[in-house]
Design a protein around this nucleic acid. Structure first.
Lengths: 113, 113
DNA sequence: CCCATATTCAACCAGATGGTTGATTTTCCT
DNA sequence: AGGAAAATCAACCATCTGGTTGAATATGGG
């Protein structure tokens, strides 16, 4: 049960991959450009991107000779939900959600009034 | 930077360890009792508990000859915050938070009216 | 004191992981 | 056509992981 959570969390366990995700937060990127800031081979980055893809955290689309990497937040959300199930018993978590709510509630109240 | 996120996410990447955390959600438990529902050796569970302890997700206190395991939600919260920084840019995340809000907002509105 | 219980330690094993290098494939450009 | 660029593949390596078993180390109870 929930075998893919394994892959999501395992993918997140590597700092290089988390940094890649952070980079993709700003914009879609080509593999070479993803690799550029890291001091490791292109092949290594390619592998990391494979892990992220398998976990569903990113998607890769080949256009021409470049392969574009795009963040896929759905997988991340699934893991986030799992973690929140722990937060539920812990009121302290609310504080962390506060700024999130401040940003999102205006939209949500749309369907409330 | 943020080296311990590595350990937290790596610890969460194993289904046995996630199940242990879920069990500890209910109550503190002795090592033997944690091991009971699993079809693996006590030593294996002991190792898993070591990983969870190193990640800071649980703490272990020895009282007499039994060692009690206790959930430590702080480490989890740290990881949760990291994930939320991704959710912030994605409104679709709201849906996942909905039931969380349903559970928490009544409490939060306590200090609002 | 002696035994059973609770837990860890130590050695070992198979398989995954994270990296390397060099060759290969595909595509673009002139 | 031919060369350079983008990316992956393949083989290899060291280390980590998740499990095993058997012995060792407390600690508690009669």
């Amino acid at each position: 049960m929930k075998r893919d959570l394994d892959q999501v969390f395992a993918a997140l366990a590597d700092p290089t991959r988390r940094e890649i995700l952070t980079m993709l937060l700003e914009d879609d990127m080509a593999v070479t450009d993803v690799a550029h800031p890291f001091e490791m081979s292109l092949a290594a980055i390619s592998k990391h991107l494979g892990v992220l893809t398998n976990a569903g955290l990113i998607s890769q689309e080949k256009r021409g000779r470049v392969k574009w990497c795009k963040l896929e937040p759905d997988a991340l959300r699934e893991a986030s939900v799992w973690m929140q199930s722990f937060g539920q018993f812990e009121p302290v978590n609310l504080e962390a959600f506060e700024r999130f709510l401040q940003a999102e509630l205006p939209l949500a109240s749309d369907s409330e009034s």
